[in-house]
Design a protein around this nucleic acid. Structure first.
Lengths: 198, 198, 198, 198
DNA sequence: AATGAATGAGGATTCATTCAT
DNA sequence: GATGAATGAATCCTCATTCAT
């Protein structure tokens, strides 16, 4: 009875492995044009199994997206826990946004490709919008005490800048520098807060 | 004597038509996964002709990229002509960056897809890097008199924000609002300039 | 429960069927310009399967070559078994060379096309050279006791004549006559052996 | 008025250039799978012109064949002129058969490919048969005085051997050695003549 | 006489997906 | 639960050929 024999309770393990392989494959090729075969091979399963579990390539991509978004959401939530002070919370959000979990060559590429997927697949768009909205409300919540009515506008700028920093790193060969990126966004926010009361 | 009979001197006409169709096709589907056949049909030629003139799908995409980048470059150059004052020039760059030529649903989608192409095709990456560098040096040139040493950092923020605004609009269904976008970036720049002398 | 439903262990069966079809198709059209589709249809499979198992047209041709060469080699080896006397062995080689296995309209055409393939594909050349060398050394081995130092030269003539006989039959519509061909080559060898001691 | 303007009387020049280019192209690639475009480019004309003059690819190949066959025929005829003695004439035929005109890497490859063409195109077959028959009767004519009734059989062997020598050289990378090849065939003939009166 | 322009037809190859086991 | 087997459909690309000029 080999250790790779089908066992009960393998489903979640397989699913996770396939999703992981999907992200790795997209991340390392930089494209959505990866074959289910490549993904399956990387996951050590047959491509038929990937279909069996997810129903198709698109569904697999969506599952992978959800996984990334969930991961990011969890990271933010965790870093916010127990923090009360607005400025602290702000910094926590930015730090989580540029943490090594998401702000890595491959994952950056994955994000970029998800934006492309969202052009075609409504569900992908929905997921990305949820992420944007959540980030926005998180930021607004912190900024309100600091910037009053201008909080939404500043949050919009900050959100766009975060995405822009990601996008720009999709082209760079250098290893992303979390601290510098956090600073860049934080500087923007601070300036805008101060700029308003000038 | 039909108007679609072979006539001499058609090459530049066809090339332009095919490039235009390529941009339209990518823009309207939001994907690089368009077939040469679709593009050709839209251009009113055979897919063989597209291959004949460009040599292949990838080369066609690159030609389309060059066309977009050239277009944008020309727009910036034109809007800068005769402007001396740094602040005026700054505004001109931003206005050109969010002009209707580039800042439109389809072209935004095209830009996004070019970023994806650049993950795979070195020449695409090169092209995009040139654009980014040019924008950066243009911004730095204007900012130097206004922000001194902090010009490069501010230019970097502004550049990233521009890209971020584009990226975010790739998800929006609303018609892009040039003025608002220009303001957002301009506000960032102003705040940062002032922020430094606080 | 149709007989063409996927069953396990089909791979070797399919491979053999596809190779057989390849030889038949080349043999009956007399060209390497057969489509994978034609071959697949003849084998009763999809062209995708041919690619799946062999990786491409060229690889398929090489597999077919190996099959023919192996077949011929086996025939020679079998006919040599238990034969000691040089002259007997010589005759056995010739008989095998012109046996119905190889010396048939279609297979002759296949050989001819393999020579053409060898002009382009190094591996095909290598295969054919192996065949020639093996034949040569087989002949020399038999001829040494009969012709001494002149064995290699006679073997070279005999080998070339065999190929020439094949080539000439590629143009003939008559059914190849093994006995006559064996005699022709055998006569050459005998004459040359005797000619030396004249 | 440039020197490459269409001039009257250019037709034979063009035809010759295109045929030459055809042979060079087949010879250097070792395949019939050359495009009319390649041939035309090599000849310095448009592919349309090749069609204009020859009517199609196949017809072009046939014209090229005729040219090679004619060339060879002329060479044989010239070398036979003024020779009366059978043995001398025999040698002349062999020498012509292995002269540098035909017995060269590229032309050998061309011959080989013509044999393949003959599998498909009846006219090509006809042409090749004419060549074989002419060679045969030339040889028989010389051999009759030397070998009597056995002349046809010896001629057949010699003819096949010549073709075999060509075929084998299609695989070799060495520069063909005319003298050695002539000797090989001549030795066969001599042995067979003598062998009969043993 | 010669060609640039253009295409239809066809072919190799890839891949997501299905299905019996 | 998991996979080997198999394929239909699609896509890029090539090329001989045509035609107006």
């Amino acid at each position: 009875m080999g250790s790779d024999m089908p066992r009960i309770g393998m489903e979640p393990v397989r699913r996770a492995a396939i999703i992981k392989a999907t992200l790795e494959e997209i991340g390392s090729t930089g494209t959505l044009e990866v074959t289910v075969g490549q993904i399956a091979r990387r996951a050590g399963v047959s491509s038929a199994l990937a279909h069996h579990y997810f129903g198709g390539k698109e569904a697999l991509f969506l599952a992978a997206m959800r996984s990334v978004l969930t991961q990011y959401g969890a990271e933010v939530r965790a870093s916010l826990r127990d923090l009360q002070e607005p400025e602290r919370r702000l910094l926590a959000i930015l730090t989580a946004s540029f943490s090594h979990t998401s702000f890595r060559r491959e994952i950056i590429s994955v994000w970029l490709n998800f934006y492309v997927l969202a052009q075609t697949v409504p569900e992908a768009k929905r997921l990305l919008m949820i992420y944007q909205r959540r980030l926005h409300s998180n930021l607004v919540f912190c900024l309100r005490p600091l910037a009053g009515d201008r909080a939404p506008a500043i949050a919009a700028s900050a959100g766009a800048l975060i995405d822009g920093v990601y996008l720009r790193h999709a082209l760079r060969d250098v290893i992303p520098n979390p601290a510098a990126s956090v600073n860049m966004v934080f500087a923007l926010i601070e300036s805008e807060i101060n700029g308003g009361v000038r």
